[in-house]
C-alpha cells in the first residue's frame, strides 16, 4: 500500500449504522460526538498508518466499538457544553438586565459584556482552596460533589428535542424530577458538616423551602401527566402539538412557575441564601472554586426548572397549533426557554 488518503480513515459514517448504536432513533449529540471522534481518532489512525502501514491499532481506533465508546463520552460533553453556554447566556442576560434596571453597566468584558462571566469563573478558579479546620471532611466534600453532580446530571437529562437527549426513558420526566429533588438531603448534609451556625440555620431553611415547594410542583406535574397519559417526555411534548398545556392549565402554569423560582432559590425566595443575616447561606464555608461550582449548580437547577416549564406547559420543541417540528427544534426549545429564565 502506497500513499494512503486520510479520507480512508475519516469516513463520517452514519452513526445509526454503528453496530453498537445505543439509541433507536437518530441522536444529534451522539452524531456530533461520533464525528468528532472520527476526526480525532481517524487522524491519529492515519498518522500511525503512515509510519507503520497495515497495523492493527489504526483499524481499532476507527472500529465501531471504540467510535461508540468515545462518541458517548463526547456526546455527554456536548450536552453539558450546550447547557453551560445556555447558563452563561442566562447569567449574562440577568446581570445585564439588572444592571440596566439599577442604572449601571452590568457586565463589561467582551462583546456586550458577554465574557465577563468567563472572567469571573477564572477568577474564582484561581482562588485559594480554603477548607476550615473543624469541618467534617468526608461529608463536606461528598455533599458538595453530590449537590453539583445531581444538578448537572438533571440538567443533562433535559432533552432539547426528540433528537437531542441522553436517554428516552418511558418515565423520563420522573427521572429528571427525582435527580432534581435530591438536593435538600445533600444541602442538609453540607450545612451540618460545615460546623457553622449560619450555614446550619440556612441549611434548614433551604431544605424546608425546597421540600415545601417540591410537593406542589409534583402535584402540578401529575396534572400534566394525567392529561397526557404518559411519563415520557416525547409523549408529553407531542400531546401539546395542537394546544399548549399552558392554556388549559393556566393556574398550574403560574403555580409551577412560582414554585420553580422558589426551587432555584432566586429572589424573592432567596431566604436560604439570606446574604444580609446569614452571610452566604449554607455555602458560607465553601470558599473559592467550591463556591463557584455551587453557583454553577444553582444555575443548572434554574436551567432544569425552566426546561421543565417548557416541556410541561409550553409545548417543548414543537410549534404550536399543529405546525409540527422545524429544522432546528433545539432552537425553538431554547427560545421558549429564554423568557422563562429571564423572568425568573
Amino acid at each position: 500500500m502506497g500513499y494512503d488518503s486520510i479520507l480512508n480513515w475519516v469516513t463520517f459514517d452514519n452513526p445509526v449504522d454503528n453496530a453498537f448504536y445505543p439509541f433507536g432513533v437518530y441522536n444529534l449529540p451522539y452524531d456530533i460526538g461520533a464525528k468528532l471522534w472520527e476526526l480525532l481518532g481517524g487522524t491519529i489512525a492515519w498518522l500511525i498508518n503512515l509510519l507503520v502501514p497495515g497495523n492493527g491499532l489504526s483499524t481499532w481506533l476507527v472500529s465501531d466499538a471504540l467510535v461508540n465508546a468515545f462518541a458517548i463520552i463526547l456526546m455527554v460533553l456536548v450536552i453539558f457544553a450546550a447547557g453551560f453556554v445556555v447558563n452563561l447566556t442566562m447569567i449574562w442576560q440577568e446581570r445585564k438586565v439588572m444592571g440596566r434596571g439599577m442604572d449601571r453597566r452590568g457586565t463589561k468584558i467582551g462583546p456586550l459584556g458577554y465574557f465577563q462571566c468567563l472572567g469571573d469563573g477564572l477568577k474564582t478558579f484561581m482562588k485559594e482552596n480554603v477548607v476550615p479546620k473543624s469541618v467534617d471532611k468526608k461529608i463536606y466534600w461528598w455533599a458538595l460533589a453530590l449537590i453539583i453532580g445531581t444538578a448537572v446530571l438533571a440538567a443533562c437529562m433535559i432533552p432539547l428535542s426528540d433528537r437531542w437527549f441522553i436517554m428516552d426513558y418511558p418515565a423520563g420526566i420522573l427521572m429528571i424530577y427525582a435527580l432534581f429533588a435530591l438536593a435538600p438531603f445533600f444541602i442538609l448534609g453540607a450545612s451540618w458538616a460545615q460546623n457553622n451556625k449560619y450555614s446550619m440555620i440556612a441549611g434548614f431553611r433551604a431544605a424546608e423551602l425546597m421540600i415545601s415547594y417540591e410537593i406542589p410542583m409534583l402535584i402540578l406535574m401529575t396534572a400534566v401527566i394525567l392529561q397526557t397519559g404518559s411519563f415520557n417526555i416525547n409523549s408529553i411534548v407531542n400531546a401539546q402539538s395542537e394546544m399548549w398545556f399552558m392554556v388549559p392549565q393556566i393556574l398550574g402554569f403560574f403555580t409551577f412557575f412560582i414554585c420553580a423560582v422558589a426551587e432555584s432559590e432566586r429572589s424573592p425566595f432567596d431566604l436560604a441564601e439570606a446574604e444580609s443575616e446569614l452571610v452566604e447561606g449554607w455555602q458560607t464555608e465553601y470558599a473559592g472554586m467550591k463556591w463557584g461550582l455551587i453557583m454553577l449548580g444553582d444555575y443548572f437547577r434554574g436551567y432544569v426548572c425552566c426546561g421543565l416549564i417548557v416541556i410541561l406547559y409550553m409545548g417543548g420543541w414543537l410549534l404550536p397549533f399543529g405546525y409540527g417540528g422545524t429544522a432546528v427544534p433545539e432552537l425553538v426549545f431554547l427560545l421558549r426557554y429564554s423568557p422563562c429564565s429571564s423572568s425568573s
Partner: peptide, 15 residues
C-alpha cells in the same frame, strides 16, 4: 435596600 436583598434601591439611593 441591601439588607433586604434589593440592590436597586441601594444604587438608586446612592445616585
Amino acid at each position: 435596600g441591601t439588607d433586604l436583598g434589593n440592590l436597586t434601591i441601594f444604587l438608586w439611593c446612592l445616585r
